[in-house]
Structures are given as C-alpha cells and as structure tokens.
Amino acid sequence: MAVESFSQDTVSNLVPRQSSRRSHTLFVALQKEIVLGILAPDRTLTELDLAQRFGCSQGTVREALMQLNEEGLVKRQPNRGTRVAPCPADDARALLNLRREVECAHLDRVVARTDARLVADMRALLDGMRNAARDGDEYALSVRDRAFHTRLFEAADLPLVTPILTRCLIHAHRFKILNSQPNRALSETAERHLPIVEALEARDRARLHDLLAHHIATIVDFGPDLTGGPTEGET
C-alpha cells in the first residue's frame, strides 16, 4: 500500500479544504505547479504517475484531481484522462470583468460590517504577502493575495457569491504568472494592497471602490488593462 509522503504547511492551511487532509495536501501541491506553470497547459496527468511521484494512493490522487477539475484547473474527460486546463486571454478578460463586478458592487455592505477584527485580518494577510515577497515565494504570495480579497469580500456576507470570486481569483493569478516576465515585482504586488487596507480602516467607501477597481484592472508587471477600458474614477 502506498504511504503518504507529503505534509501540510502554512500555505495549505490558507486554502479552503473540501476533502480529506491527504488529498487536500496533494491538491495544494498540484494547484501550485499549475498556477506557476510547472505543469503546463494541456499537459496530460495520470493517476498512476502522480501516485508514484507523491507516494500516495490513486484514490487520493483521484480526489485531488476532482477538486482541481471543480476549480477549472484541469479537465477530466471520460476515457480520455486528465489534462491541465488552458489559460486563454479571453477567459482571463471575462473573469476580470466578473471579478470587478463582484468585488466592487457590494462595498456598502463591506464598509458597514468593517470592524477591528476585519482590519486586523487584512493587515495580517498583507504582512504575509510581504514576507512571501521577501522570501521570493510567488505561490505563497498568490495564496495570501487571494485570501486577502476573499476575506474582504466575506464581510459583505454574500456566501453564495464567494465561490464565484475565489474562482475568478485563482485564474486571474494563474494568467498573470504565466504571462509575466522573469524577475516579477513581488514586493510591489504586496505593497499595492496597503492603500486598500487604509481605505477600509477609514471606512471610505468611495476611495475603496476606486482603489479596488484600479487594482483589479491593472496587473503588476504584466501591464495591460484586460477589462477593456478605464475604471470609475480613472482618466
């Protein structure tokens, strides 16, 4: 019988778990490789190969691949196996527009529910991004970045919408990473979240809207505004 040979870490604990501990840890490991492009788009993945590589059972692999399929990072087809999903620009553009609508349309609810605990959580996640940037850990930075935006939106108390945002976030980050140049601006990526925290702490809804809209529309060190035009408050 295969023996599980990988373990959880702090990053794994930040990713919401929807399966057993062992398959979740494998899910996070594979998610990392897909987001960073180590497992390239359209690459074939087999349960047997992954089980041998990670020293786990094929059942554990199957469960992890099912979760990746639900997240849109792989495509599982009957009798045709599993492939890493593509990451086209048209999808990224549509998801960025959807993300901006989700994050920016409910800020009245967010501001109304802002308290010291929310601000403290946001500052802690910002510090985590800074630490990841300092360590040159792009995946850890991405996980904490996604957790930052998810935590902010959770204050709106719209739990049926949150999964839509989390899907937008993972694919936006993957698209950015796959299309960025080497020596990406990790510190700048972390620090651009500071004004968002400050606007939230001030309960300044208008500034928070403008900052988030600009933040979403522009991708650090990739460049273009993929949403197709200026955001509110921009010229």
Rank of each mutant, 00 (worst) to 15 (best):
A2C: 05
E4N: 10
S7F: 12
Q8N: 07
V11N: 04
V11I: 13
L14Q: 11
L14G: 00
P16A: 02
Q18L: 11
S19R: 11
S19M: 12
S20K: 05
R21M: 15
T25C: 08
F27T: 03
F27E: 14
Q31S: 13
Q31C: 09
I34Q: 01
V35D: 03
L36E: 13
I38L: 12
P41T: 14
D42G: 05
D42M: 15
T46D: 02
T46N: 07
L48K: 11
C56E: 03
M66D: 15
Q67H: 14
Q67L: 14
L73T: 12
V74M: 08
N79M: 10
T82A: 02
P88T: 09
D91Y: 06
L96Y: 15
N97R: 07
N97H: 01
R99A: 14
E101I: 10
V102Q: 00
C104F: 03
R109E: 15
V110C: 03
V110I: 12
V111H: 06
A112L: 14
A116V: 10
R117G: 11
A120L: 11
R123I: 04
R123E: 13
A124K: 08
L125S: 04
L125K: 10
L126D: 11
N131T: 14
N131L: 14
D135T: 00
Y139F: 15
Y139H: 14
A140W: 05
D145H: 12
D145V: 02
A147G: 00
H149R: 10
R151K: 15
L152Y: 02
L152N: 01
E154G: 07
E154A: 14
A155P: 05
A156F: 06
D157Y: 06
L158R: 05
T162M: 01
L165K: 02
C168A: 01
L169G: 02
A172S: 14
K176A: 11
L178E: 11
L178W: 08
S187M: 13
L200F: 05
L200Y: 04
R203Y: 02
R205Q: 15
A206Y: 00
R207P: 00
A213C: 13
I216H: 00
I219E: 09
F222S: 07
F222M: 06
G229C: 05
P230L: 12
